[in-house]
């Protein structure tokens, strides 16, 4: 339809140097696999860029792991003064800490630099992404990819493994399956929150810090027991920004702790559905944000 002006057969060969074949007409990057391939390409470039400063790279990886380790040191110090916090033992809190940390760590690793979108809108470098044959989302997600963020994921994984070794869980096939499912769903929920935040930055780049309230703030929230917080806060984290589905609700099934809001027990199983729903909402918001940018410019 759009090609009506220039018939396909009439598309002249443009020789530079002369006399060689023209690149294929087929639109690239249509399929998800193509998007993933492009993501991999850009991630590879950033990783090699980081390795250009080897010493700094090592320090950053160490720093990132240590940063979150000190974070857990705070939890350890708290439990040096008490054996229970909000009715949760250290091992139970460590389980929440580990699952929350792995979920946000994975989201942060895969598309954690999306909060830089506002900056790219302001300085105009987003335009360069819009003239490449790769979806903008893929480019923004891969932007400033930092392998050092693996430090956060592995630190959380260690805490989780330690907590599992200390917990006395009555495992059933259901709960064994639930553990990886809740980690993936949690990562998806946090990814959706990152994406939603970035979508808003197409219009409100200056407000980028609000995003941190829901991502890193959400992480700070869900690494402590829900019983510590006021009920309104827990309700907000369940029904408004569904962070409770990252770990609080599914964890009740594994830890055998009471349901924080007294909701029906089936709610504790639906994290994957909630994750799918917020991802869909994030996708819609992203499209709307991009459309708004393309109609108004920077």
């Amino acid at each position: 339809m759009a090609d009506a002006g220039v018939p396909r057969a009439g598309r002249p060969v443009r020789p530079f140097p002369p006399g060689e074949p023209v690149p294929p007409e087929e639109p690239a990057w249509r399929r998800p696999a193509d998007g993933l391939r492009a993501y991999g390409l850009i991630v590879g470039m950033w990783t090699r860029s980081a390795l250009a400063y080897r010493l700094s790279f090592v320090m950053m990886t160490f720093g990132n792991g240590a940063l979150t380790a000190l974070d857990f040191a705070a939890v350890a110090i708290i439990f040096g003064h008490t054996t229970r916090l909000g009715g949760f033992s250290l091992a139970q809190t460590a389980f929440l800490y580990g699952t929350s940390g792995m979920a946000i760590g994975l989201a942060d690793l895969l598309l954690g630099s999306m909060d830089g979108l506002g900056q790219r809108v302001r300085d105009g470098t987003l335009d360069a992404m819009l003239v490449r044959p790769v979806p903008v989302f893929v480019q923004v997600a891969a932007d400033r990819f930092a392998l050092r963020r693996l430090g956060r994921v592995s630190q959380a994984a260690l805490v989780l493994a330690w907590s599992l070794s200390r917990l006395d869980v009555a495992w059933t096939p259901g709960t064994v399956l639930l553990l990886p499912v809740m980690l993936v769903s949690g990562a998806a929920i946090f990814s959706a929150v990152f994406t939603l935040g970035a979508a808003f930055q197409f219009r409100f780049g200056d407000a980028s810090e609000v995003q941190n309230s829901f991502t890193y703030g959400g992480n700070a929230l869900t690494q402590y027991p829900p019983t510590v917080f006021a009920k309104e806060l827990v309700r907000g984290a369940t029904f408004v920004v569904p962070l409770a589905f990252v770990n609080w609700l599914p964890a009740t099934l594994i830890l055998g702790t009471p349901q924080p809001l007294g909701l029906p027990r089936w709610v504790d199983w639906v994290s994957p559905l909630v994750a799918a729903a917020v991802c869909a909402a994030a996708a819609v918001a992203w499209q709307a944000g991009l459309r708004s940018y393309r109609s108004t410019g920077s």
């Binding site: 708290i78 609000v210 309230s213």
Partner: peptide, 19 residues
């Protein structure tokens, strides 16, 4: 936006301290 973030983190930390 920063004040909002401060408020969120402050609230989360305040509740854990209270506990």
């Amino acid at each position: 936006a920063g004040v909002f973030t401060n408020a969120v983190f402050g609230m989360i930390m305040a509740y854990t301290y209270i506990a």
